[in-house]
Design a protein around this nucleic acid. Sequence first.
DNA 1: GCGAATTAGTTACATTTGCAACTAATGAAC
DNA 2: GTTCATTAGTTGCAAATGTAACTAATTCGC
Lengths: 159, 159
Amino acid sequence: MNVKDTKPPPGAIELERFLPYRLNVVAEAVSRALSRIYAERYGITVPEWRILATLGQYGRMTAKDIGAHSRMHKTKVSRAVAHLAGNGLVERMSNADDLRESYLMLTGDGQKVYCSIVPQAIEFAEGLFDGIPACDREMLERLLHQLEMRANQMSKEGE
Amino acid sequence: MNVKDTKPPPGAIELERFLPYRLNVVAEAVSRALSRIYAERYGITVPEWRILATLGQYGRMTAKDIGAHSRMHKTKVSRAVAHLAGNGLVERMSNADDLRESYLMLTGDGQKVYCSIVPQAIEFAEGLFDGIPACDREMLERLLHQLEMRANQMSKEGE
DNA sequence: GCGAATTAGTTACATTTGCAACTAATGAAC
DNA sequence: GTTCATTAGTTGCAAATGTAACTAATTCGC
């Protein structure tokens, strides 16, 4: 009998079914598996990949908007952008209307890297859903959305 | 029109529906919200909470097993345990049959802290599911399990 | 317009993390 | 039994992260 099959004592949490724990474990496993695609071949970190993906999708954005959209702290964005710019994958264009901010976009090289990662990332994400019917995927999307809303709401409620 | 409603260019990933990204964002939002319960009141970190929760459920375990079970690196476990032991929440009992390892368990204080967190954590997790029917919760559990299996498998496949 | 408050982004510092090297103990080969 | 390989756990070190302080630019109040 596997230890995981034992019932927890009364008044304890069964961690294997505790959603916050489950979400974190799964998210980390998925993230780790995905990172193999871009980390080994291109030496790109997770925050860097997020920025590439955001710019690849939206074309041009400020650092602030990237942070807000991809839920990353501004210092994380700042450093990842600095690194990507140093590697010639991202370029900055200052905004003449507001010199505090810069627009960021992929360079030609950045586009190339992004475009070579995308099909593999999509294939990976598809592979995750292997054997899962489409209606379940939609349900998962909906559930994740609700959970995120609830979590953010409950986080605020505690002031 | 919200920027999120715009279609991504062809050959790009729509990040809002990209599962690895979604999972991470939701997991982090949930984890952050939950940590309010134990971080502010008891000054406990996420890894420490995981150890408390594992010991609270299983009663007595080695550091290695805690790491394997809660998916934490052994150095993370080692340091979190050291801190918990320093605060008198966890105690070590060396195993006479194998002096390399120690059994870890909650102290009386550790039990108290754990037991005072549990109801709030359960209430929090229940709150996340507000308005979500029970059958959907079960589906979510199943889906998360499948995704984790698939991710670990795909991670291994890349050697 | 002018000074105070705000904002985008960077940098300094302290904390956290992961990897690699290590120690101490056990097991395996012979 | 002695040597070699493996294992549990800790520690040194470098990289990553978050908080707070900072700079430079903009906006608000008047």
